[in-house]
Amino acid sequence: MYRSYVGGDPDGKFLRDGFLDNLTSWGLVVNSFGDLEGVYLEHLRKEMGHTRVWAVGPVKPIEQSGPTTRGGPSSVSADSITSWLDKCDDNKVVYVCFGSLAVLRNDQMEALALGLERSGGSFVWSIKEPTHVEGGYGRVPHGFEDRVAGRGLVIKGWAPQVLILNHRAVGAFLTHCGWNLVLESVTSGVPILAWPMGADQFINATLLEQLKDDDRAERQRAKQLAALRATVDGGSSVKDVESLIAHLVALGAAICK
């Protein structure tokens, strides 16, 4: 995104300035954890010339207000989704979601729908309304929902993603590899089928790529355990939060002198 900046583009300039401002920051706080991105965190410390880089993730979404209200309305209630998944076998459902910004072209929608239909498998497909693009995007093929009734659940609007990913029936996640989705998948122990589309998503997909001779389920389980270890007492992310607080307290004291 930084390298693709073209002079005169206000959106591109905003993003470019943000990257440059990050490099001049007093410190960086990132939603990640050492076992996942230790090499890159060390690179940031080297580039910035100090150790004030804290990985405090995975940061879990706040859902006190209910899983369906966090991001907007939904065509299917959380209770209905849970009831539907409860009827499915363990690890047999593919969850499909491309986040809140990425929207498929209509020809991509048709190709994905055809693949899901012909697969014969169970799936949950979360489809966001294409609010930031013109026509030609996000259209569910005519008759698709009727043809897959019983084994396919289509959610239009906001999906309670954490609830879905943590359900025993979900065995794979087809996604564009946005960072929030990646972390939620890792902490849920659900393997990702990567379909990166832009920005950091190609790097994220590469980061999560499995070696050919690895057992995918065991590899994903290891990532899940590493993420959980990072957020318990004594874990790397907890230590980084404590370090961040200590630095802020010291900074505040120095300013007040």
Rank of each mutant, 00 (worst) to 15 (best):
M1T: 11
Y2F: 14
S4P: 04
V6R: 12
G7W: 03
P10R: 12
P10Y: 10
D11P: 04
G12A: 01
F14A: 13
G18K: 06
N22I: 08
S32D: 01
G38A: 05
Y40S: 12
H43E: 11
R45Y: 03
G49N: 10
H50R: 12
W54V: 04
W54E: 05
W54N: 01
G57A: 07
P61Y: 13
S65T: 11
G66V: 02
G66F: 03
P67F: 08
T68P: 01
G71V: 02
S75V: 01
V76H: 00
S77G: 08
A78P: 02
S80M: 00
I81P: 00
T82K: 14
W84C: 00
C88L: 01
D89C: 09
D89H: 13
D89A: 14
N91F: 07
N91C: 12
V93Y: 02
V94T: 13
L101C: 11
L101I: 08
N106S: 05
N106R: 10
E110W: 07
A111W: 12
L112K: 09
S122R: 15
F123N: 00
V124F: 04
I127T: 02
K128E: 13
E129A: 10
P130H: 09
T131Y: 14
H132W: 12
H132R: 10
V133R: 09
G135S: 14
G136L: 08
Y137F: 15
V140C: 05
H142N: 14
H142F: 09
F144K: 06
F144M: 06
F144A: 07
E145T: 08
R147W: 06
R147Q: 11
A149F: 11
A149Y: 07
A149P: 03
G150D: 05
G150V: 00
R151N: 02
R151T: 01
N166D: 13
N166R: 11
A172Y: 02
T175S: 11
C177A: 01
C177D: 03
W179E: 10
N180V: 01
L181E: 11
L181G: 15
V182P: 07
V182L: 02
V182Q: 04
E184M: 06
G189Y: 05
G189E: 08
A194N: 11
W195F: 12
W195A: 04
M197A: 03
G198C: 08
Q201L: 05
Q201T: 10
F202C: 11
I203C: 15
N204I: 06
N204Q: 05
N204D: 08
L207A: 12
E209D: 06
D213K: 08
D214W: 15
R219D: 04
R221T: 09
K223W: 14
L225K: 13
L225S: 13
L225R: 10
A226I: 09
L228G: 10
R229H: 09
S237R: 01
S237Y: 01
V238C: 11
D240R: 05
D240K: 05
V241N: 02
S243M: 14
I245T: 12
A246W: 06
L248Y: 08
A250I: 02
G252Q: 10
K257D: 15
